[in-house]
Nucleic acid binder design. Structure first.
Length: 528
RNA sequence: GUCCCGGUCGUCUAGUCCGGCCCAGGACCCCAGAUUUUCAUUCUGGUAACACGGGUUCGAAUCCCGUCCGGGAUACCA
């Protein structure tokens, strides 16, 4: 008999699309979970429906409040909000499965009455033994053997008398082919003979995943289920349960898994798959969102960078890819750089501040008194970092006289006369009009002159030298000195910043200001 | 073992439904060059793929069959 699972057809009965993400609080939110949540969220938003969070906490041994909080924080960090669920409420609650036990018991009772379920008195040991035997015989079928399927009332009474508390199993049709439609996989044919009679309810009345999930999906009027491919077989069990309950089942979309470098399912035990690790390392959340979305879904053939809003505009469940995707940290990193570069400096500064202050306590003060200056500093590094967390390592030289690294020393000593140029330049600069150095009052220069300076930038009126003016002056100075511009510039940069990398030299001079530049140039010049 | 799914550059993918516009496009990475006061950014160019074998067809990445490889599932976890 082939049953066309037509009962699982589009949701004309529920006019409003309702989707859910149903994590179990047994660990952190990992990448795969985040992606599943995101696709559900995006589909709900795209269809103008509701997105809800349901907490599947029936594994009491492993569920923790801490995990729940981490999951919620991870979702919020990514910008995934929910209409119903924890800390949000809603008309279809409660949203914690352990608070819905009465619902499951009632449903189990109905199924027992109708014969779709039965009580199983088998011990864990017996089940284990059956499995071992099946393996030993190389049986095609692995699973519960249906021992208690057709117990007589007398047999049942005997077990009850002995005080054996049964669990409740779903009675799978023994030999039935069904064709199911999946939004991603298309039409798939399976036979119930490959499934065993699975446990719905434990002896203590706590439901198992497949059971609780269906009861809740019915109660919460879920219309579309987007979840990992590892649930495909569960989906078969669940469809049959919907049928037994006389309910319409949602549309299913089983999405491919995210794979690690070795091509294996990404494990939630992998430390670096915890969403909050990305937050704590200073990844821009929008970039992580964008990158994860890309793991299996494309905005278009020629665009990788898109916003949440654009995704919602374009998202369709059916357009999720069919094959698994490997997580590529390099591309994620590139994506982060992309977002950092697009962030307006004041916002970038605000975002990066938490990573700056532990390394550089002075930043706290600077943020209050020299905000525009700090914004210029950040702007100068915008195209040099990918993570907020990387800024702190790079800008220390602005707050304390640096120790020269090897490359810097080499640049200083490249020309025997190099150190003497530094002293001369220091003296020369003192005749000029460099802005005052932090922490002195910079008198508003940073509001007027925006960095990083570009070649074609128009001149601005300013009481102090702008980077363009500093450069013009420097070139004239160097010409008088009679050396090559390039060989002059490198020792200066080294003395000022302690490295051979960084913003344009004249931005550096502008940022550092008169006193600091002179001091550092002399210090290196004298150190010979 | 059994069942299910998948397989386009190293990686993420577009194209596959409705065969020709694809001797396969974009992005990351890598390499070379340009710009430049360094690094970075930016720009230009380059290397690199339709898993394999059979069909069907005037013509196949696209349709069919088989093989191989990969993954998932087979819990009183979710």
């Amino acid at each position: 008999m082939v049953a066309d699972a037509r009962s699982c057809s589009p949701s004309m009965i529920h006019p409003t699309p309702r989707l859910r993400f149903a994590p179990s609080p047994t660990g952190p939110l990992h990448l795969g979970g985040a992606r599943t949540a995101m696709y559900n969220w995006a589909a709900a938003r795209a269809m103008g429906g509701a997105f809800l969070l349901r907490i599947e906490d029936t594994d009491q041994a492993r569920s923790t409040e801490a995990s729940l909080q981490i999951i919620l924080a991870g979702l919020r960090w990514l910008g995934i909000d929910w209409d119903e669920g924890p800390e949000q409420g809603g008309a279809f609650g409660p949203y914690f499965q352990m608070q819905r036990l009465d619902r499951y018991r009632a449903a189990a009772e109905r199924l027992l009455q109708s014969g779709h379920a039965y009580r199983c008195y088998c011990s864990a040991e017996r089940i284990e033994a059956v499995r071992e035997a099946q393996k030993a015989q190389k049986s095609a079928f692995l699973g519960y053997d249906g021992h208690c399927r057709e117990l007589s009332p007398a047999q049942r009474a005997e077990f009850e008398q002995r005080g054996v508390v049964p669990n409740v199993r779903f009675r799978m049709p023994s030999e039935r082919t069904l064709r199911v439609h999946d939004l991603i996989l298309g039409d798939v044919e399976v036979n119930t003979r490959d499934f065993d009679d699975w446990v719905m309810l434990r002896p203590d009345g706590v439901p198992l995943y497949n059971f609780a999930c269906v009861i809740d999906d019915i109660d919460m009027k879920i219309t579309h289920v987007v979840r990992g491919n590892e649930h495909f077989q569960n989906g078969i069990k669940q469809r049959l349960l919907f049928e037994a309950l006389g309910a319409e089942c949602p549309l299913y979309a089983h999405i491919p898994l995210i794979l690690n470098k070795d091509g294996k399912k990404l494990s939630k035990r992998d430390a670096d798959t915890n969403m909050l690790d990305y937050r704590d390392k200073g990844f821009p959340p929008e970039a992580v969102f964008n990158y994860i979305a890309l793991l299996g879904w494309g905005f278009s053939g020629d665009r990788d960078v898109f916003s949440r809003e654009e995704m919602v505009q374009a998202f369709r469940i059916e357009s999720i890819g069919k094959s698994g995707a490997k997580f590529d940290e390099e591309k994620l990193r590139w994506m982060c750089g992309e977002y950092v570069r697009r962030t307006p400096p004041p916002l970038l500064l605000a975002r990066a501040l938490p990573w700056l202050t532990p390394a550089l306590p002075a930043v706290v003060h600077a943020a209050r008194t020299h905000a525009a200056w700090l914004e210029n500093v950040v702007a100068c590094y915008q195209e040099r970092i990918a993570l907020y967390g990387e800024l702190g390592d790079k800008i220390g030289w602005l707050f304390a006289d640096p120790v020269l690294d090897d490359a810097a020393k080499k640049n200083v000593d490249k020309d025997p006369a190099g150190r003497s140029w530094l002293a001369a330049y220091a003296a020369h600069l003192e005749q000029g009009a460099l802005p005052p150095s932090w922490p002195a009052d910079r008198q508003g220069v940073d509001e007027v002159v925006r960095l990083p300076s570009k070649k074609d930038q128009p001149e601005v009126a300013c009481a102090f030298w702008t980077p363009a003016r500093i450069e013009a002056d420097c070139r004239a100075f160097v010409e008088q000195l009679g050396v090559k511009f390039g060989s002059f510039v490198h020792p200066v940069r080294a003395a000022l910043t302690g490295t051979d990398k960084g913003p344009g030299l004249f931005d550096v001079l502008f940022l550092l200001g008169a006193e600091t530049c002179a001091r550092r140039l002399r210090a290196v010049s004298d150190a010979s």
